[in-house]
Design a protein around this nucleic acid. Structure first.
Lengths: 238, 238
DNA sequence: ATAAGTCTGTGACCCAGGTTACAAAGGGGA
DNA sequence: TCCCCTTTGTAACCTGGGTCACAGACTTAT
């Protein structure tokens, strides 16, 4: 049977498994238009063995060094893939959203290596979990392979960018650019921002207060409101 | 004709173009055993339009933001792919060696995006430069696609590792691990080590001197000799 | 041999950002 | 309302590592 069940045995299991309904199947095909294009035989095989799983926000779904044996498609919600340091700091590598895929998982499956990062559910999510063998079978289909390819190359470019930022950019600029990406009304705690950038809470508090002191943002518990987007952008130019 | 010529017009051009000899063709097939497995028609097409180019060490071969329109196979030598900061610091992302490929190039070709890093020849190199259209044609072949796939996933894992190191590891550990990877007798300048790690020359000099002070390494101009590999390894455990 | 370029050594200094150790809000549940 | 938990504020302090400004030592070309 599906072996990713083992994979989650030590997690707190705030998840429920369902059969894939007709409606969800349609949803899946809308989000992943490649799927209906692959060999129908392969697809029905794969989907018959796949399961719909609902996860609650905060659930860890994989850990570094863990073997990797299922491949997720995201119907709704959001997976955060991140690294952890020995002193407990975290740093986001990327997020997987509906229509996207988790490239670490794909990479690990293809290379038959354990995960080298952590993954956890950021917002309540519905995932279609496919067995690793079915995933590899799908890869024999040309369109599917091309789909995975494009996500891979996108991710490689993104990771290269991230390396550059972490190595060369100061924290205020990185924070400013993160805020800009998140829109004008942001619901997030300082700790979560720190975990995204690989720093500590105090630094974020300090920087946010300095931004707020210059009237660039307004702060309240769990909320950030961007007042002066241009000023924020000008920090990027420095 | 081959449009990568334009690509190099602003470089200093320490390169010479040759036809691909029978011997080099054999060499290429040995290093890239996938090639003889692809559809022979595609292959001969692609190779007939490809050219052998010899580059001298130090030659820049692509730059950030430059469009990307040729795909290299490495017969000998070594390409360094790196990022540059505004203040001139550098940081190596990865090296391409014979049998490997330049994933940025592949990624940029596939995503039709400009380069987001720099590439330069580290040791005198012989490359077989394939046109971008021929490269994309080759990708219609299953074995070739799988080959590129495995290199992609390898590189993704490598980049994730690099992000972690840059974000969380101290410089002495990163330097120690770099030295260990380079073998017991290393010919390199302090500046080159700095460029690999994304730091400055002075830091490397200091750290190397502290290592040498504890008898772990012996230093001379352009040379580092590892005397006590175990001690170096124990720095990694810290 | 001389000059010019490249590499290495070094010390003083500075600063971003991480650490520690609190205090004080704010908010939700009992 | 009270209690507890989460989030935020903040000040003092420390340190890794980048900057500046040199001075020698080695190498190579002329």
């Amino acid at each position: 049977m599906i072996n990713w069940k083992q994979e989650f045995t030590n997690s707190l299991l705030p998840r429920v498994i369902f059969m894939i309904s007709e409606k969800q199947r349609k949803n899946l095909f809308q989000l992943y238009p490649v799927l209906p294009e692959v060999d129908p035989e392969l697809l029905t095989q794969a989907l018959s063995r796949a399961e719909l799983v609902k996860f609650r926000a905060g659930t860890p779904i994989f850990e570094e060094f863990q073997p990797c044996n299922a491949f997720p498609f995201i119907l709704s919600g959001n997976i955060r893939v991140y690294k952890q340091s020995v002193n407990g700091r975290e740093l986001s590598l990327y997020n997987v959203t509906p229509g996207g895929t988790c490239v670490v998982t794909a990479g690990c499956l293809l290379g038959d290596e354990p995960y080298n990062a952590f993954g956890s559910i950021e917002e309540d999510s519905e995932l279609v979990m496919m067995t690793s063998t079915d995933f590899e079978n799908l890869l024999t289909s040309r369109v599917f392979r091309e789909f995975i390819f494009s996500l891979f190359s996108e991710r490689i470019l993104g990771l290269m960018q991230l390396v550059e930022e972490v190595a060369f950019e100061k924290l205020d600029r990185r924070l400013a650019s993160l805020l800009l990406r998140k829109g004008k009304h942001i619901s997030i705690s300082h700790q979560e921002l720190a975990d995204e950038l690989g720093t500590v809470r105090e630094m974020i508090t300090r920087l946010l207060n300095s931004f707020s002191g210059s009237g660039i943002i307004a702060l309240s518990r769990g909320q950030i409101e961007i007042l002066d987007e241009d000023a924020l952008r000008s920090i990027l130019e420095n």
